[in-house]
Amino acid sequence: MSIEGHLDSAELFRRHASFVANFLARMGVPRSDLDDLVQDVFLIAHRNNGYDPGPAKPTTYLAAIAFRAATTHRRKGKTRSFVKAADEVVSQAGDDRMSPERDADQKRHLALLDKALAALDEDKRAVFVMAELQGETVVAIAAGLGIPVDTAYSRLRAARQLFRAAAKELYGEPPASPAADTMQRVGT
């Protein structure tokens, strides 16, 4: 009999593979390596006998594994560079439902976002991505990463400051039209 709330790796995959793939992408993993890393994450989840209800949500539990996968991947030098990775991810991130102009804007913003995220170290970046981009609560993030809640808050606060500074650096003084200004600065 299955434990209530228990999710095996297949069910985890079905529900949260997109979450993991997007998290890895925002952690700077290039699109070409995403498939392999997603597989690694869920293989480990499988060896862990899936997910059992606990302080961490299934998403933050998987994100913690994905975080380790991303950092190891990066340190191994497989990631050619965060900027290239961002470009590659961005080039694949277009949405067919958007108008071409809006799609182009979205891609430009994503390129800048990844550059700003690159200013954060891995620990802060993981907390920031989960909290700000994936809408996880700090308590769930802390549980997933196995760190005290205060530490998670502290990392988030520091990450926000660094992100603001990096965004300001990228944009300079807030332009009237951020997208147009971005084009000039990034040279895209």
Binding site: A25, D95, Q106, L113
Partner: peptide, 10 residues
Amino acid sequence: LLQAGRQADV
């Protein structure tokens, strides 16, 4: 930037 990140999907 953050909105773009929230809407992005690989």
